[in-house]
């Protein structure tokens, strides 16, 4: 199981390294979204709940782009058949894909969050960086699990690009809610407030529950 996941993961990363398809697009998209927010809100700097909202909406939409592309290579090149023929556990594909999406999101955020601090954020990012990284990691885990599930669900449909956001956005509302509430005190003007532990707990529980649900139903998406 572990070696299968490692093999699949290294395949994903090699593929992304050679084609450079998803991650650069996601990064460019998030920076373009900051520019759009700048003109849409007509603000030079944002703080507190507004900053948190802008950051999370941007990251969520960038994540949807990644989710859209997640299984496309498998679908178009017949990777599903190859995987199903291999004598390995099907859950390995779920784990590998979720890890891939998680890593992609982390890489995107390494660029997109400093860019946010540079372009829009009022208070300095360094005032609560460790807490913010914790929130980002937990939210990434939730987006990765749900995104993999939705991508697997939508890959066989004709209107894939439409179905993915339609299903993923309502499912991700609790993640967005909890992550935005967690990040609000961290991005305040005049010193970071305490991290709201209850929201962090909600985020973690939501991640865990949907990881279990995804584990339970993912096998059925691969049957043929």
């Amino acid at each position: 199981m572990r070696s299968t996941v490692a093999a699949l993961l290294s395949k994903e990363l090699t593929l992304e390294w050679r084609t450079r398809e998803s991650v650069p697009a996601m990064v460019l998209f998030s920076i373009a979204t900051y520019v759009v927010f700048h003109f849409g809100l007509d603000r030079d700097r944002v703080t507190g709940d507004l900053a948190s909202g802008v950051l999370w909406v941007t990251l969520l939409f960038a994540a949807i782009l990644g989710v859209n592309r997640l299984f496309v290579a498998e679908y178009e090149q017949g990777g599903f058949d190859g995987f199903l023929l291999a004598p390995v556990d099907r859950t390995a594909l779920l784990v590998a894909k979720a890890l891939t999406l998680f890593l992609f999101l982390c890489i995107v955020e390494v660029v997109a969050v400093p860019a946010f601090a540079l372009l829009l954020l009022g208070p300095p990012l360094t005032q609560a960086l460790p807490e913010l990284v914790l929130v980002l990691l937990l939210a990434n885990a939730g987006i990765a699990v749900l995104g993999t599930l939705v991508a697997g669900l939508a890959i066989q449909t004709r209107a894939r690009d439409l179905i993915v956001p339609l299903i993923a956005l309502p499912l991700l509302v609790p993640v967005l809610l909890a992550a935005a509430r967690c990040a609000t005190p961290l991005l305040q003007d005049g010193g970071a407030g305490a991290l709201p532990a209850d929201w962090l707990a909600i985020l973690a529980i939501y991640d865990l529950l949907f990881a279990l649900i995804a584990y339970a139903v993912f096998d059925f998406l691969l049957e043929d």
């Binding site: 599930l149 669900l153 004709r158 179905i163 339609l166 299903i167 499912l171 139903v217 059925f220 998406l221």
Partner: peptide
């Protein structure tokens, strides 16, 4: 989104399976 999902999958067997997974989630 239950109906767009069902409508956009051609294969009947796949359609019902995917719709079931969606319904569970």
């Amino acid at each position: 989104t239950y109906w767009p999902l069902r409508f956009s999958i051609e294969d009947k067997e796949k359609q019902s399976r995917y719709a079931s997974v969606f319904a569970i989630v």
